[in-house]
Design a protein around this nucleic acid. Structure first.
Lengths: 223, 223
DNA sequence: CCATGTGAAAGCGTTCACAGCG
DNA sequence: CGCTGTGAACGCTTTCACATGG
């Protein structure tokens, strides 16, 4: 079991390594991997040490070997079947997002309440009405879902997805979801992100009257 | 100066309070606020204690009073001028997102490289070419920006925004941005979120062979 | 000699437990 | 009596510093 903080950084390392491999780079030291991933070098070494010893002292890490191991750890050699609920602007953006299929995440089913959208195809998926959710999710063997619905229905949608067999959810609706503990849940909340930025912006505006320049607390966070 | 972890939760509390006020609820105990925000009650009390003493012992918090104070802390009484760069599916979703204008965030300028899009209006903003970025950002007094461009150009776009006077960035492109420390940066990375879910999904699939049921480590995180 | 891998230390964030106040 | 506000304990994360090995 890897620490959660480590899990969140593995995709970044993987991205850096993939770029390096494309540039024919065969080895990389923790120092370089760290600076390209925006973290501390000791952090990189500790994170990678959880996976075993895949580096060579005096040299660095073999980019190809490490890339392979990170992919395996993240389960990227298998394919994940993903459902998308809510085909507003955000839902459409999600289904067309390149980063998904690229890494083994396949949106195989989409759902919306709007009868005008039902029956259309978005990406590789057909749009179904909400009534068919349980049936289609079970039939397609979907295990992950993206919730891009209005906040008011997100909890209900989440519960129906979980009942139908989904075990991982990525929720974009601005509500806190209550789900059984065996379900993995991650939240992407644009309003929260903006308000956090607003706080620091507001802080700078206030302290600028007292302090000389704008050298304030930069909230750099990758999550 | 509030701890960053606390700042990230304030918008959640604010949302719960806003809902409660709409339901005519005048006071709320830390216990209820906590459960509705999906956190621990002691956490709520500690977070709120950083802002001062706005609760009444034996009763709870005055929803209206607390809401007002949280809004002030987050700088939501002032208006923020926001620029949007990149008008793909995601960019369009962002400009049409309701949660923004609602809380004082106004997208007053948009930019894209596609000549076919330049000159159009999206929401309340006119679409400009990239060449006009510095000029328009300075003229409109933009301080915050959303980067919804391809990864390859995000670093360049970010630097140009910062040169033009932007001090807060919300980046949706899947790259680590390197910026001067006085700039606040937040990252929303869909590929990372999915891969984290993939890790736990993969883990459950692997351990299911050994352990009896799927009661695994649920990564519930609001961030 | 150089960079990894890792104990030990330092720093944060969360949770507990209860004193204190309305 | 109930709930806030808070010191103290706990656990997780990050960083340091260096022994170890190619």
């Amino acid at each position: 079991m890897l620490p959660e903080a480590t899990v969140r950084r593995l995709p970044l390392y993987l991205r850096v390594l993939t770029d390096a491999i494309a540039e024919q780079q065969v080895t990389m030291a923790s120092e370089e991997l760290a600076s390209r991933a925006g973290v501390n070098a000791a952090q990189v070494r500790k994170d990678l040490s959880y996976l075993g010893s895949y580096g060579t002292r005096g040299v660095g890490y073999d980019t190809g070997l490490l890339c392979q191991h990170l992919s395996r750890q993240l389960g990227l050699n298998q394919d994940f079947k993903v459902a998308l609920v809510g085909l507003g602007n955000l839902g459409l953006a999600l289904v067309n997002y390149r980063g998904f299929a690229h890494r083994g995440f396949h949106v195989v089913a989409a759902f919306d309440t709007d009868p005008a959208k039902v029956g259309r195809r978005v990406g590789d998926a057909t749009v179904h009405g909400m009534a068919e959710l349980a049936l289609v999710v079970a039939r397609e063997g979907v295990t992950m879902a993206l919730i891009a619905t209005p906040a008011a229905v997100a909890q209900d949608v989440a519960e129906r997805l979980v009942s139908a067999g989904v075990t991982s959810l990525l929720n974009f609706a601005p509500v806190v979801l209550n789900l059984p503990p065996h379900v993995s849940l991650r939240q992407v909340d644009l309003a929260v992100e903006l308000q956090v930025l607003g706080y620091y912006e507001h802080l700078r505006a206030g302290t600028a009257l007292f302090a000389g320049n704008g050298a304030g607390p930069a909230a750099t966070d990758t999550d």
